[in-house]
């Protein structure tokens, strides 16, 4: 009995501080923004209850509607590109490391180093590298005689988002690599050996045996990519600025939310009601899509 009480005490002792922090900094603000999104605001003061009017505005009124769907479009671009480019490279790197290619001991560490860098530092430095006239990227292209490929990477509407995504892939590809590498390593060696003895080729071994067995890792990476893509903010903020420029081509839900709720640097006035509503939409989207994808992907996971 005493032991039981003691155990409960210790469980509470270790959980409470964390729970308190999560409640204050995550759960309470979540409900606060739901509350705030139902009000009209006079600059930074809550005014009167308007129900879902702010949400209706986001979906139907100029310019909110245009900005919102444009931002969502860019978030989708982030997800698709990250999913197909970054995670495919991650899968390949993970498999190569697992196959113990020459120098894999070193690569294993090298791939992961950028993951440890701060997003802001990476964004700032790559912003300099991609500078159209002074950046190393264009300098290199010019020196190699590829001057016509030297572009305004972050200033061209068509190139800006892909450029920022590319930088983010450079920074983050080590993470899926590591997760997939761990996944491959947890596949029982007997299975692989048995397949070899049965004369299975490398290609079929990968797709029919290895890939299904690392499905849990694929689920995790997919869900994390989803959440990451819906919450993109720092990368765009550091490389393109709060306005999602040029001409909204890099605007995401994150920058749109920040700009609306807190106001642009010197042009905007805060619209906390509409900003909160965008925040709630981001939350609902993230929660809904993640839950759906977890359920959908779990079905494809197999066990030996």
């Amino acid at each position: 009995m005493k032991n039981q009480v003691n155990k409960t005490f210790w469980i509470l002792f270790f959980i409470l501080p964390g729970l308190l922090i999560v409640t204050i900094f995550i759960i309470a603000p979540l409900f606060m923004s739901m509350f705030n999104s139902m009000y009209s605001w006079v600059s930074i003061d809550r005014d009167r209850w308007v129900g879902f009017e702010n949400f209706v505005k986001i979906f139907t009124k100029y310019p909110y509607q245009d900005r919102f769907f444009n931002a969502i479009g860019n978030n989708v671009q982030w997800f698709m590109t990250t999913m197909f480019v970054q995670n495919t490279i991650g899968l390949l790197f993970g498999y190569l490391l697992f196959k113990r290619i020459y120098g894999s001991e070193i690569f294993q560490r090298v791939f992961f180093i950028p993951v440890l860098f701060s997003v802001v530092a990476v964004g700032f430095l790559w912003g300099l590298y991609l500078n159209p006239n002074m950046g190393v990227v264009n300098r290199l292209l010019n020196d190699m005689g590829l001057g016509q490929w030297a572009m305004a990477w972050l200033g061209d509407e068509k190139l800006a988002t892909p450029s920022i995504i590319a930088v983010n892939i450079w920074r983050w590809v080590g993470f899926p690599t590591l997760v997939f590498y761990a996944g491959f390593n947890s596949v029982p060696m007997e299975t692989v050996e048995a397949a070899y003895i049965d004369g299975v080729g490398e290609w079929r071994l990968f797709w029919k045996i290895m890939f299904p067995l690392i499905m849990p890792a694929v689920t995790i990476i997919t869900v994390l990519t989803l959440i990451g893509s819906l919450n993109v903010f720092e990368q765009v903020y550091t490389m393109a600025g709060l306005d999602g420029g040029p001409f909204y081509s890099t605007d995401t839900l994150g920058t749109l939310f920040y700009r609306t709720a807190f106001g642009g640097i010197d042009t905007g006035l805060p619209e906390i009601g509409i900003g909160s509503a965008i925040g709630v939409v981001i939350y609902v989207l993230t929660f809904g899509i993640s839950a759906f994808s977890i359920v959908a992907l779990r079905k494809r996971e197999v066990e030996l």
Binding site: N133, M134, A152, G155, D156
Partner: peptide, 12 residues
């Protein structure tokens, strides 16, 4: 304006 002027920021 400079080459690729759409990529030229205030500090540039």
């Amino acid at each position: 304006m400079p080459d690729n002027f759409m990529g030229i920021a205030y500090t540039d």
